[in-house]
Amino acid sequence: MKYDYLIVGSGLFGSVCAHELTKQGKKVLVIDKRGHIGGNIYTENNNGIQVHKYGAHIFHTNDKEIWDYVNSFVEFNRFTNAPLANYKGQLLNLPFNMNTFYQLWGTKTPEEAKAKIAEQRKEMDGIEPSNLEEQAISLVGRDIYEKLIKGYTEKQWGRDCKDLPAFIIRRLPVRFTYDNNYFSDNYQGVPKGGYTKLIEKMLVGVEVRLNIDFLKDKEYYKRVADNIIYTGPIDEYFDNKLGKLEYRSLEFKTRTIEQENYQGNAVINYTERDIPFTRIIEHKHFDHVTTNHTVVTEEYPSEWKEGDEPYYPINDERNMQLFKQYRELAKSENVIFGGRLSEYKYYDMHQVIRSALNKIAKLESTNDS
C-alpha cells in the first residue's frame, strides 16, 4: 500500500505532522522503533499515577495559539513548577528569588538581596569570564554558585565548571519577588491523564506501527510513501559517515513506594557534587492525585554511548560544525528532517509543536503553488 507520507517517530513533532496531514486528507503511516508512541514524553499509568518514563515534562508557553492547540486534544491541569534544591540537607527555593535569598542570607527586602549579590560579584570586577564558573560568579556571586549551580552543573555535563564554556549560562534567572513559579510563561500545566493520552488523540485515524527500526530497512521504507518526514538522529540517517554527534544522556531509577507522599514536591534537585543523581521526581504531584502509594524517579546524567538515548545535544563548536555538514547532506535527500534529533537542538515542547505546524504550513503552501 502506498502512503502519501511516512513519518519516522511518534514523538511530538511526528504526531503533530501526522495529525495535520491526516486533516488534509493525506494517507499517513507513522512508524516508531520503540514499543510505544509518544517518544520521550510517553507517560505510563501506575495504578492512578502517570509516570513520566523519560524525565519530567511540564508544558509551558506564552504562545496562546499553541496552548489552545494542545488543549483541543486533552484538558491540561494547573500544575505550577516550583522545584526545590537540596544542598547538604538544606532546602532552598528555585528559581533564585527572595525566598532563596532569605534562606541563604536572611535578607528580607529586594534592596538587601541586591546589595548582597553585588557584594559577592565584586571578586569578578574587571575580569572577563572565561569559563562557566567565572560567568556564574559574575552574575550571582559565590554563595549561589557554590550551593546551587556548581555541583548540579558538573553532574549534568560530566565536566568541571572551569572546563565548561561561559556561554552555557549567559543569563541566570534572578527574581526579587517571593515567587517560586519556575516558569514565567502565561500558560503552564500537564495533560490530565498523561502525555500518552495527548499523543493518542493526535494520532486518531493514523496508521501506527511500533517496534520498527526505519534505519535497518531504509530503502524499503523509502519506497512505501511519496514523502518522508524523519525525526531521528540526523547523523544516524547518514550512517554516521562524517562522524557522530555528541549528546549527554540520562539513566532513570524508578521505584514504587508504599506510602502516600515521599517528598512533598514534584521536583527536588540535589545540587551537591557527591550525590550522583541530579534530582528526584515524585510523579503524583504533577497530577495532584490521591493514592496510597507513590512513584519516584532518580535521574542520573551520563555520557552518551551507542545504544543510549540521546537527550541533550552538546552544542559546542566541533558538534555544530559537524551538524552543519549533515544539514548540507540532508538538502540532497527527498526527506523532511524535523524535531530535536534531526535538528540537533534542545527544544521545549511548545517549540517542537510550533516547528511542526510551520513545517506543515510550508508544505501546504508549496503544494498549492
Rank of each mutant, 00 (worst) to 15 (best):
L139A: 08
R273S: 13
C17N: 08
N47Q: 09
D287V: 11
I58T: 11
F73T: 06
F167D: 15
E200Q: 15
L322Q: 11
T107S: 10
E272W: 07
K192E: 08
Q325Y: 00
K324H: 11
I149M: 12
T290Q: 13
Y178F: 10
E200T: 13
V204Q: 15
I31W: 03
K23V: 07
D160S: 15
M202V: 03
E258I: 00
E306G: 10
T294P: 12
T107H: 00
G35C: 13
N240V: 05
R327C: 05
Y5P: 08
Y152C: 07
T254D: 13
H19A: 06
W157A: 09
W304V: 05
Q325C: 01
V208F: 14
Y300C: 07
C17P: 04
Y3D: 08
S184Y: 05
L172C: 14
K23T: 01
Q50M: 11
I268P: 06
Y221L: 09
F238C: 03
D160K: 15
G39Y: 05
H36D: 08
K26V: 02
Y42P: 09
H285K: 14
Y187C: 11
V174C: 13
H285R: 12
Y152L: 14
R255L: 13
F286Q: 08
L210F: 11
F79H: 07
I41M: 12
I281D: 12
P313H: 00
